[in-house]
Design a protein around this nucleic acid. Structure first.
Lengths: 333, 333
DNA sequence: TTGTAGGCGTTATCAG
DNA sequence: CTGATAACGCCTACAA
């Protein structure tokens, strides 16, 4: 069931078979049909390995994400897969976890599979220090690296991100306009986009002549129940706040549970804003006002950019997309 | 940067290099070290295509799931990936959507990539008619097919599933014990496991000498908001029920929203049971009692089975795992 | 328009 | 223990 079998049965040479396989126009129509028929008949499928050996590519893109069970990432992976396929590319997915060592290992693995490019989904792939990102920039020497929601200024690294700074800045402003004076900011990660959001929060506080207070910027565990407990503890210690801006919907859900526990009514006593517009934000009652970072657009843009890069075009290495606030019931907007 | 470069620099033949590469014991220790050093030095990585050409395998497992943004599936994919990697296998993920044509296309694609086995995640891959499953059984002629949460009795198809029938049967019984007489069953899909659950519901109703009523088994859209509307509509049409058993947590969330709208208190007026123990079930207030189908165990078992199959062992083609009821706040259990 | 032959990087089978 | 050499299946000049 290889190209030789086909050539023999069709009474032509393997070169001709190869030509019809690759849509080469230099084949007469009768010959092409004859070959095509034989292929159908014996159920021939070209061997990807042999093809890859010569071309040194498998027409495959590697996708890395920290955890595909994170709703935001899962969504992104889905869109990426779908659209890559539409562009004729297959994809390899790796769920790396959040450990740097593993990220490096998986990236190496993808390189060894000879993927044509790698897409890093989520800012968790960008570390704080240049040294820790070296494995990424090194990989960029051989193939294009696409980053979703993170920024790394380097040759052959292309980033698509949403303006997290601006989104948090804007929503914090709106809360302040409504006389909320003690706005609690919740976050889990100090990744690139995590820092952007935090910085948006701080800027807004400062711009409104309020004081940036360390105790109002809370690092939370990555778990609803534990975060709720943490908030209760802080509240019992005397910390007071009339609004919560969360860097992820999960944390907003935790804030909802805290409010219930503390007997606060939402949004009257406590306004809550989530992030990502994930399904979680519409599961609660009241439903959570959240920032939509347009996963789909983010993914589409990334793939468009990638295709242009693979076609050898010159492409800007940073594209920024704006966010939308989805107003639901946990704010008075 | 190929095997020849290494052999030349190390002053040995390519055969020897290949041997150290594959851990063949017939190499003297000094020679092995010499070769190993050269490989480090010039940063040699074996070419997967060439290797695949010879061995006709890439040590890769194909994973198919309908939609990686479904929390249950996403979780499963994550566990599968992790554990396959631990067993030294890489994996290809395909998100196929729910359309039969696409499922067939993607399966073909995986076959053409020469994967060593395919894992179908979720019962949505098993159609009602034998004819529509033919593409799966055909694939099983060439490589093992693993099915998670579905059952297909065929050579070289291995299924791991949880006892959905029993779980729904048991929980319905418990509701009836508590004098709930009008139990509404919500579902979206008529897949294998969907039918199992439905059948568990019916059996319980019958076993308790109640009447199975068609209007109490409701097919819902795959969307929280729309399902809520559907329930409101039914309620306004006079349909009455004092308990809801949902085939998925999403539907249970919709039932919560309906209860709120109808002014019913949960669980007093309306008991609600979800399915999957997904994060959604702990987002609501009160939190949802749900059936945990042990995704992790399901995945681990699948992979263990697969490894035994690939090792040429004789393995039973069906493994069943029991479910647990996670009692939260939407029932009086 | 078609055919021939060499190469892609490994593995595996023989001899030595 | 080591080395030469033939597959593996496809692509692509180069020739005809």
């Amino acid at each position: 069931m290889n190209i030789y079998d086909v050539s023999e049965k069709a009474g032509v040479s393997i070169a001709t078979v190869s030509r019809v396989l690759n849509g080469n126009p230099n084949v007469s129509e009768p010959t092409r049909q004859k070959v095509l028929n034989v292929m159908k008949e014996i159920g021939y499928t070209p061997n990807v390995f042999a093809r890859g050996l010569g071309l040194n590519t498998m027409h495959t893109i590697g996708i890395m994400c920290a955890d595909s069970s994170d709703p935001f990432l899962a969504n992104a992976v889905y869109y990426l897969e779908q659209n890559l396929r539409k562009c004729g590319y297959d994809s390899f997915l790796c769920c790396t976890g959040y450990d740097l060592i593993n990220k490096q290992k998986y990236l190496q693995l993808l390189l060894s599979k000879r993927v044509d490019a790698i897409i890093l989904v989520g800012s968790s792939f960008l570390e704080a220090t240049k040294k820790d990102n070296a494995y990424i920039t090194a990989a960029a020497d051989s193939i294009p690296i696409m980053v979703i929601n993170g920024y790394l200024n380097h040759q052959n690294v292309f980033c698509t991100l949403c303006d997290d700074y601006q989104a948090v800045y804007d929503v914090t402003n709106r809360l302040i306009e409504q006389e909320r004076k003690n706005i609690l900011y919740l976050y889990t990660s100090r990744s690139y986009s995590g820092l952007q959001k935090l910085s948006g929060y701080k800027s807004s506080i400062a711009a409104n002549d309020l004081t940036i207070r360390d105790e109002l910027m809370l690092t939370c565990p990555n778990d609803i129940g534990q975060t709720k407990e943490l908030l209760i503890e802080q509240w019992n210690n005397g910390l007071r706040f009339d609004a919560v801006v969360a860097s992820e919907d999960q944390l907003a859900v935790a804030a909802m549970k805290f409010a219930k526990h503390a007997g606060l009514s939402v949004p009257e006593d406590l306004a809550i804003v989530g992030y990502n517009n994930s399904i979680l934000s519409s599961c609660t009652d009241p439903e959570i006002t959240t920032i939509d970072n347009h996963v789909e657009t983010l993914c589409m843009t990334t793939i468009n950019t990638l295709m242009r890069v693979l076609d050898g075009n010159d492409v800007p290495n940073k594209t920024t997309i704006s966010n939308d606030l989805v107003v639901r019931e946990t704010t008075n907007f």
